[in-house]
Amino acid sequence: MSALQTLAENRCFGGRQLRFEHAAESVNCTMRFSVYLPEQAEHSRLPVLYWLSGLTCTDENFVTKAGAQRAAAKHGVIVVAPDTSPRGEGVPDDPDGAYDFGLGAGFYLNATQTPWSTHYNMEDYLRHELADLVEAEFPVDAQRSGIFGHSMGGHGAITLGLKNAERFRSISAFAPIASPTRCAWGEKALSRYLGPDRGTWKDYDSSLLIERGAAKTPILVDQGEADNFLREQLKPELLEHAAQQAGHALQLRRRPGYDHSYFFIASFIDEHIAWHHDRLCAV
Rank of each mutant, 00 (worst) to 15 (best):
L250F: 06
P218W: 14
L190R: 05
K188R: 15
D197F: 07
I269P: 02
A226W: 11
D227V: 00
W185R: 06
S207T: 13
S179V: 12
Y262D: 00
P180I: 10
H248I: 07
R212S: 13
I269A: 05
G247E: 05
E240Q: 15
A215Q: 01
S207R: 05
S267V: 00
G224N: 03
D259K: 03
P236F: 08
F229C: 04
D227M: 06
L190W: 09
P256I: 12
L239E: 03
L239H: 03
D222I: 02
N228P: 14
L194E: 05
G199N: 09
L190G: 06
A178M: 04
W201P: 00
D270H: 14
A274I: 06
V221Y: 03
I273H: 08
S261Y: 03
G195E: 04
D227Y: 05
R212E: 13
D205R: 09
A214C: 11
A274V: 10
I269G: 01
K216A: 15
I269H: 02
A215M: 01
H272F: 10
G247D: 07
L230Y: 09
A226L: 09
W185D: 05
H248C: 09
S179Q: 10
S191Y: 05
R255C: 15
S206N: 04
T200R: 13
L250S: 03
D270E: 14
E271D: 15
I219T: 02
D205Q: 02
T217F: 07
I219V: 14
K235T: 08
I273G: 10
G186R: 13
S261G: 12
T181E: 02
I273F: 08
T181I: 12
I210Q: 01
E187K: 15
P196I: 12
G213K: 11
A214P: 06
A246I: 04
G247A: 12
T217L: 13
S267M: 02
E240I: 06
L239D: 01
L252I: 09
H276A: 11
S191F: 05
T181K: 11
Q245L: 15
G224C: 08
V221F: 01
P218L: 14
G195R: 03
S179I: 11
S206Y: 01
S191T: 14
A178T: 04
H248N: 06
E225K: 12
Q245I: 02
T217A: 12
Q223S: 06
L234D: 01
L190F: 10
S267I: 00
F268N: 04
P180T: 07
A178F: 03
A215H: 11
R254K: 14
D270F: 06
W275S: 09
P218A: 15
I265L: 15
E237A: 10
Q223T: 07
D270W: 12
Q223P: 06
H272N: 13
L239M: 13
G186N: 08
I273Y: 07
Q223D: 07
D259E: 10
D205F: 08
I269R: 03
P180N: 10
